[in-house]
């Protein structure tokens, strides 16, 4: 029985790839919407994020160690990755509600609407990368071949975001308060994860270091951020990522196979 749902999910996944043109047009409409009546469009988010990063870095530099230029890349990459993860999580909560009229009318696999959220945010993420490029130009550091590790790490992060989006999309369609729950949990996760602060930042944080490694968000961010900064990654982070990625993926495909056909009744 279990295998049946999983293979159903995989079958739908393959089927959904035929709809790449539809996904493309849905995303292009979403992006045009952002640019409409605004020359800067999504770059407004970029500006607000860069101000955010600048302020946070200066505060943490003044109470921590290092100079602002050594801390800036760390914070910038962390915040941008977190922004990507969290907006995906937030917007997944509304995937099917946003697409309700289309779903009731067309019989495309609902993967299509999940792709729409993920890839739309990926494109906005690429917009935001300009911040890191700018910091690099002003104050370069050594990256070298680590870039490949960072790319591999990002691929894992992308798969995890995708799995999470599937789960959230489906469960928010069924349970309307999951969205509120996510909205409330996200800021907490942001503060307990070393995104704007570093491991060993204070004494208490040092004591909890062992627990910290098992925070999947930290691990997912680390495997991208550390190589990008030219550092080596704590091997534990890779272990966590290797463990969590297939687990989350299989769970989400299983849930999809089991529940996706019910979504039309829920919205």
């Amino acid at each position: 029985m279990n295998k049946l749902y999983f293979s159903q999910g995989i079958r739908d996944f393959k089927e959904s790839l035929k709809f790449h043109q539809l996904v493309k047009i849905l995303i292009s409409l979403d992006i045009k919407r952002r640019y409409r009546r605004s020359f800067l469009g999504p770059f407004w988010t970029t500006i607000s994020l860069s101000i955010n990063i600048l302020i946070v870095t200066s505060i943490f530099t003044s109470i921590g160690e290092g100079s602002i230029w050594t801390n800036l890349p760390y914070t910038a990459i962390g915040v941008l990755l977190w922004h990507f993860i969290s907006t995906n999580a937030l917007e997944s909560c509304d995937t099917f509600i946003q697409a309700a009229t289309i779903i009731r009318q067309a019989n495309a696999p609902i993967f299509v609407y999940i792709y729409r959220v993920i890839f739309r945010n990926l494109i906005f993420f690429l917009h935001n990368l300009i911040i890191i490029a700018l910091i690099f130009v002003i104050s370069p550091w050594h990256i070298g071949f680590n870039l490949f590790y960072a790319a591999a790490g990002f691929l894992f992060l992308l798969v995890n975001t995708f799995s999470l989006a599937i789960l959230l999309s489906i469960f928010t369609a069924r349970f309307r308060d999951v969205g509120q729950l996510v909205t409330n949990i996200l800021p907490i996760l942001f503060y307990i994860t070393p995104i704007i602060w570093k491991r060993g930042f204070t004494e208490i944080v040092s004591k909890m270091d062992a627990v910290m490694v098992f925070n999947p968000i930290y691990s997912s961010i680390s495997v991208v951020r550390e190589p990008l900064l030219g550092h080596s990654v704590d091997i534990h982070c890779w272990y966590v990522v290797f463990f969590i990625t297939p687990l989350l993926f299989i769970t989400s495909i299983y849930c999809y196979g089991k529940l996706s056909k019910r979504v039309a009744f829920w919205i």
Binding site: F19, Q21, I25, L29, A106
Partner: peptide, 18 residues
């Protein structure tokens, strides 16, 4: 399924693909 903010032309593609 029409998208209110998209143009008629864009909607033709959107609906057609749907």
């Amino acid at each position: 399924g029409l998208d209110a903010e998209a143009t008629g032309r864009e909607n033709i593609f959107l609906q057609g693909l749907l």
